[in-house]
Amino acid sequence: MAWMAWTWPTAAFFAFIACTLIVFSVLAIKYPETPRRGILGTETTRGDRVFISLLGSAFINLAWLGIVGENQPWALAVCLVYAAAVFRWV
């Protein structure tokens, strides 16, 4: 494991991703849902919306880092708003 050069923040990051995936897999099995058509015009399921939220969050964080450049944790707040919007409208 030493060669993977683990750090606490990256471990926490992956733990968060893994938890998200597990929670939503369990949700998908326990409460199956029908896909719905959102503002993107394509059918999305909860899983799709998680993926769009995570991917978008990565871009939001990068944009924050490149444009604002400080107070990085605030980017996470933007991500939360974004994720909420994705789950509501996409």
């Binding site: 030493a2 060669w3 993977m4 050069a5 683990w6 750090t7 923040p9 990256t10 990051f13 992956f14």
Partner: peptide, 19 residues
Amino acid sequence: MTVVNYSVQDTFGQNQFFW
């Protein structure tokens, strides 16, 4: 995962990493 770990650290070889 290893790439993500590398991306937040610096190394001068010999498997020594700095945040």
